[in-house]
Design a protein around this nucleic acid. Structure first.
Lengths: 200, 200, 200, 200
DNA sequence: CATGAATGAGACTTCATTCAT
DNA sequence: TATGAATGAAGTCTCATTCAT
């Protein structure tokens, strides 16, 4: 019988999906485990059947998504595109992720990558992997002459990723409008700014 | 006698300074009010003599510093420098602030400007003021032809400030070394990247 | 299985009953929630599982009992007795309530009906219902000529209820002995005094 | 120089008067010492110059007034009036006290005489003195035949005083209108009810 | 006499987690 | 797998009281 197992897996998924909405709405620290259970429509004891602790839910959400992103960056890097196009592919992937599930991206950014004290500290190594992959792209672009050498690859990676995250933050904070047009346009603007510079 | 008044003011300052260290070390949510009192060497209740709530301490720290920064940005903008030099002055001010009191900058960034849910939400208007001032610098540079018009001023401000904050985060997270040389060099790199671009 | 539901209901009841003893012994303001939990033999948090706040426990106790009393007054009023006998039935009900659970009556009188500032204010409407029902009895007795018209029904209700409450207070304060004989005799004395007067 | 002493006495009086207003408005348990000081327009340290504790303020207010009342009752009792007129004089004194300073009477009733747990317990002996004096009046009236003997003097005193207090409570709770006419009329109604009875 | 800064014990309440059913 | 009653540690905030000036 595959049904019970399926059901079990689905309940776990239901809880994770509910957690995304609750974390996005109330924040990790401010919400209660029972809020997640309520949102998922299950008893809150069940949350502890699938996860050992409240933190494990957030960890799971982060790692699930971050690994997909690392794979996307690796794939972009492995392609035969120019460095500029690789960076575009990365920006595109992240922004499309936001379009597809803004709550999830909000949670990952607000509660993990921008939370240096708590979860950011835990997942530092994972986060660093992304920077390093981007650094590699820049370094190779410097080696083949398409990027200039004055700016270190590590710094470039920081600047590129920081720019993306700030743009997403603008949408999350509702500082900037986040319609489909703005999302699409942002992909170009990010690459244009970081690669071409404001002085053009 | 001015002494009593001075003493009172100083105790309040002592508590604020202690809070900076405690917030930086343990995080706002993780620390207890008694940790702040202990760090300041005062009785528990005195914290509540000067502040109505734990949150008010963080609010105070943020507003104190952010207003200084807004003034610095305004001053840079009012000067006769080129847009690039104005942006350099802003990066310089922020990085020098970090050098002078890394804990305070850590607290402001981690607990306020990067905390979309809690305090960031509260101080959105103040944070936005900084972006708008920077936008203005870019817009005027576009008008006089020194910056190209493809990138909107709002986006440029986001990218510039995001780049700075990400660099500071790298130091705060200890992803990147933060010696005096690195701090000094970062000022140039930030402006070089945002204004000149990776492709130079 | 009805057992779990029963158990749950019983725990709530256990807490309410313990609260009566604690409130009676220490007073609402002076006791701690942990005193109630200790008296009930349950964990601290369970009190908050069943009640949102300490006040809600007292509210519950008051409303539970007051509604029973209002029903008893209504029943007395609906009967075919004389006004004097109706008043006797009311005095009887209240004094029997005291005999059955002196702690509960003490709590209701001391902490609610005689506490104009805090809980009395909250439950004013409920308290007033009792006066109004008694007023009605008097008014009808005046209409049929069994009571004289010089004393307004509202005033009569106040006097009658005040007399009962003062007698109970005497027992609660231990100003007067409260043996079974005294309780029984008080029923007659109250009605005798209010209906017949001291001058007889 | 008598002035400083006068000033000192006045400050103490100012604090007591302010306490009456604050206790009446917020209740003894709910108000803070600083509320009293604010109302009096003095620093709250000064309250502790004149009184050893918050409770002492209430004790003082109660004893000051209760002693005046005991004297009034004694005076009524000592006169050559009928028992009915003596009771009228007592009711008159208490109601006139309420008219003159409703806040003070509210505080004494709500916080002391009707608070069996806290202050009532402390001042039981003083409160009992009033009942006993009234009992004496009734007992002598029974001896001279003007009151019937079925109702014990102790019970009669309780009923009489309870009736008065309930009427005042009605005004305090704002259950009944408390205009000058109502106050005046209540004096008669109280005596009429207790002495003559509802059945007249 | 007068001030109000300073103290610190203690209260209520929250909520992550466990566990019996 | 599923429930939600039960636990209790921990945290924020209050406020009566003290005391240096």
């Amino acid at each position: 019988m595959a049904t019970p197992e399926r059901a079990a897996v689905d309940k776990r998924r239901t809880i994770l999906d509910a957690a995304v909405r609750v974390f996005a709405r109330q924040g990790f620290h401010t919400c209660r485990v029972s809020d997640i259970a309520d949102e998922a429509g299950v008893a809150y004891g069940l949350v502890y059947h699938y996860f050992n602790a409240k933190e494990e839910i957030l960890d799971t959400l982060f790692l699930e998504r971050w690994d997909v992103m690392l794979a996307a960056i690796a794939e972009a890097d492995a392609s035969q595109r120019t460095a500029r196009d690789k960076l575009y592919a990365i920006a595109e992937f992240i922004i499309d992720s936001y379009r597809h599930d803004p709550n999830l991206m909000k949670v990952i950014i607000v509660e993990v990558t921008r939370a240096a004290n708590t979860f950011g500290r835990t997942h530092l190594a994972k986060i660093r992997e992304a920077y390093q992959q981007i650094s590699g792209i820049v370094a190779r672009a410097q080696a083949d002459g398409s990027f200039r050498k004055e700016i270190t690859p590590e710094f470039a990676a920081l600047a590129f990723y920081g720019c993306i995250e700030q743009v997403l933050s603008g949408w999350i904070f509702e500082l900037e409008p986040a319609g489909p047009g703005q999302l699409e346009r942002a992909k170009t603007l990010i690459v244009e700014t970081i690669c071409g510079g404001l002085e053009g």
